[in-house]
Write a protein that binds this DNA or RNA. Structure first.
Length: 465
RNA sequence: GUCCCUAUCGUCUAGCCCGGCCUAGGACACCGGCCUUUCACGCCGGCGACGGGGGUUCAAAUCCCCCUGGGGACGCCA
């Protein structure tokens, strides 16, 4: 079998969304699995809507996910002469023809057909025009067979057939001379030697026409694999209404790329009962045969669970670096980044995103804690004054200021006062963190340091008085 | 409307191709318990599905047909 060549071909009219990312991921995995080549191609034939910013955004998202490509990015906008030449070739061979119908006429015909319950396809008005009217604006249409059946074997869905009379003559070149998607995709896939076309389900209907174009161009057919769509909770196509759909929005919300990759690949693909996969493992195990055939619903809770899994198990130094970025985005300075890995270790069991971790660990990086009113009213009360004084006294002398030493010191406070752990820990927690929820106080205090800890405890005491 | 695709717990899925091992397995979520300095985490347990109807067969989640549901396409977008 010839060497595998696949491509991801986004259109740069926005950011990389979840669905596109999964298509890219499947292509990437398939290429790596077969030691093939992954080509990146920018489909920007719509010069009006395509932007460089979108290209940059898409590349950034792919890099973040770790989906590296081997060739490209190739821009279709830079290949117009090639397409023009191919259009001329089809025109000469009579496999395409000029159409002088105006957009308005076509729109009208479409509406009428719909109203009459017919399929709104091009009626072929200009298909057999004898004279050429060069002076009038025209588009070029591909001449589609009028009868017969076109069948292809989809690697995911199996055999798919279309009656050719359902197909109409689609436009391959616009009035302004630019080519359209269905044509360039074929020209480029042929030119770039693409062996497997792995793309979204929504392209199934385009496939028979594209097959005709391969034939018209005298090219061999690639294999096709159509991956099912991703839907929202209401089973409609995933959109902003269902929450974030941009890949980079997940980065901002504190998700790890490996979590998103793991989630996306399991949405529609499986390997027995296994849920957790590293990228290396995916490359080893991925196969199109195990991709499901029906659309899947995007489930944010499961993504969150995977993210928490990778936060729990990831390298604390790397996570610390990522956490720093989130803290800084919140406007907090991190004067001692070397404590960050320890912070990660403290919070990784409780926070499901880095964003959440940054929020919950923020008290460590503020000048003073943001006091939760209800918590203060409950624990920073006159009745606890003596307790706080005793704690301060013991902590002043607690040496070293470490987890175990602190445990001993607080233990002495408990012995003196006869109070249980719960009674002693909560006032300290509130004084130091500002709230009632945090990791173990014995773990927090060493990170904060003796000086800062005492400062906060004294401030709390002062408040009570 | 027409065409194409699709159908196992609320969701992602295993099983289906090669019918019996399925009183249908796993995961997320949810509920309960345990653990516990708070909140989590973790552990244990529970709830929960073969869309409906016909066939074929000794036997069907697994094969065939119809219906229904869902999705997609029908653009001088990709």
């Amino acid at each position: 079998m010839s060497k595998v060549r696949v491509r991801f071909a986004p259109s740069p009219t926005g950011y990389l969304h979840i669905g596109g990312a999964r298509t890219a991921l499947f292509n990437f995995l398939f290429a790596r699995r077969h030691q093939g080549t992954f080509v990146l191609r920018i489909e920007d034939t719509d010069t009006v809507r395509s932007t460089q910013e979108s290209v940059d955004e898409i590349l950034k998202a792919m890099r973040w996910l770790g989906l590296s490509w081997d060739e490209g990015p190739f821009y279709q906008s830079g290949r117009f002469p090639l397409y023009k030449e191919k259009v001329q070739q089809l025109l000469r061979q009579g496999k395409a023809y000029r159409c002088y119908c105006t957009p308005e006429e076509l729109e009208q015909k479409r509406e009428q057909a719909m109203a009459e319950g017919r399929k709104p396809k091009y009626d072929g008005t200009c298909r057999n025009l004898k004279e050429s009217r060069e002076e009038k604006p025209y588009v070029v249409r591909f001449r589609s067979p009028e009868s017969g059946v076109t069948t292809f074997e989809d690697l995911i869905k199996g055999a798919i057939s279309f009656h050719n009379d359902e197909l109409d003559d689609i436009i391959i070149q616009r009035t302004d001379g630019t080519p359209t998607y269905n044509f360039v995709v074929v020209v480029d896939d042929v030119e770039m030697g693409i062996t497997h076309v792995i793309r979204g389900d929504d392209h199934v209907n385009n496939t028979p026409r594209q097959i005709h174009m391969y034939e018209a161009l005298g090219a061999a057919l690639p294999a096709f694999a159509h991956v099912p769509m991703i839907l929202g909770a209401d089973k409609t196509r995933l959109s902003k209404r269902h929450g974030a759909t941009s890949v980079m929005a997940y980065e901002e919300m504190g998700y790890l790329p490996e979590a998103l990759v793991n989630y996306l690949v399991r949405l529609g693909w499986s390997h027995g009962d296994q849920e957790i996969f590293s990228l290396e493992e995916l490359i080893e195990k991925f196969s199109l045969e195990n991709v499901g055939r029906s659309a899947g619903v995007f489930n944010p809770e499961k993504l969150l669970w995977l993210n928490s899994h990778y936060i729990k198990n990831g390298d604390s130094r790397r996570l610390g670096g990522l956490l720093q970025r989130h803290l800084e985005r919140m406007g907090l300075a991190v004067p001692r980044p070397e404590v960050l890995p320890d912070v990660v270790v403290l919070f990784r069991e409780r926070d499901k995103t880095l964003e959440e971790m940054a929020k919950n660990a923020a008290f460590l990086f503020r000048d003073k804690p943001e006091l939760d009113e209800a918590a203060a009213e409950k624990f920073l009360v006159a009745a606890n004054r003596g307790l706080l004084e005793a704690i301060i006294l013991h902590l002043e002398r607690c040496d070293p200021f470490t987890h175990d030493a602190l445990e001993d010191c607080i233990g002495r406070v408990m012995a003196e006062t006869g109070l249980k752990m719960g009674k002693v820990a909560q006032p300290v927690r509130v004084a130091v963190t500002g709230g009632t929820v945090s990791p173990s106080v014995f773990a927090i205090l060493p990170i904060l340091g003796r000086e800062e800890t005492l400062k906060r405890l004294r401030a709390a005491l002062a408040m009570i008085k």
